[in-house]
């Protein structure tokens, strides 16, 4: 996709200062502990973690890039490819599934034109809409099982999103961008 959604990877003095603050929260000889915090900084600012970013984190922490990459490749919460501008994580675990989260996912995909047929839970969990604005992913239990179905859109948490209110949810973010709204 085009890179209009996220700025290209570039470390500003502010980002570097934030990284240094995080590093200082661990014992001096245990800098490696800051690998997740630094990766979060990267992902928050640039949407995903590319090779360049991995190398930067490694150099900040005196690690080999591979030691950073093994962390990135393990965690479902860290991404190596760009999601959409609005990344929607729908809980698929038991209580939410009973409340209708699979139907919610279907509705969201219909409304945004996302094709999940090539997705799987391990290697390719994220599917992006053709316009690049939206992406979806099934998440495991988001710890709000009493108010399912629940989902996260970027950092915003939404509860009791029944499939019928999927459009309403999208409208909060970018009505004009959804193909359903365009058509």
């Amino acid at each position: 996709m085009d890179n209009t959604t996220f700025p290209p990877f570039a470390i500003t003095p502010e980002i570097d200062a934030e990284a240094n603050k995080r590093i200082s929260q661990y014992p001096e000889d245990k800098k490696r502990s800051a690998v997740l915090p630094l990766l979060h900084i990267v992902q928050h600012n640039f949407g995903f973690i590319n090779t360049e970013a991995t190398e930067w984190v490694a150099s900040k922490l005196d690690l080999e890039p591979m030691q950073v990459h093994e962390v990135v490749s393990f965690y479902p919460g860290l991404r190596e490819h760009s999601p959409g501008k609005y990344h929607m994580r729908v809980c698929r675990t038991l209580s939410c599934a009973m409340a209708g989260s699979e139907e919610l996912m279907e509705r969201l995909c219909e409304l945004t034109g996302i094709d999940r047929s090539q997705s799987d839970s391990h290697h390719n969990p994220i599917a992006v809409s053709p316009c690049g604005q939206w992406s979806v992913e099934f998440a495991e239990c988001l710890a709000s099982c009493g108010t399912g179905p629940v989902c996260l859109v970027n950092d915003d948490f939404h509860e009791a999103v029944n499939p019928d209110s999927a459009q309403e949810l999208l409208n909060k973010y970018g009505k004009a961008d959804s193909p359903a709204a365009n058509s």
């Binding site: 502990s33 800051a34 997740l36 922490l61 093994e70 962390v71 965690y75 479902p76 860290l78």
Partner: peptide, 25 residues
């Protein structure tokens, strides 16, 4: 200090959590 995980259930297991906090898988 706050240390944020990254979406893995196994980090709730206390020794997995500790490894995660040490910056490893």
């Amino acid at each position: 200090y706050l240390h944020r995980g990254a979406g893995a259930y196994i980090c709730g297991e206390e020794t997995g959590l500790i490894e995660s906090l040490e910056g490893k898988r």
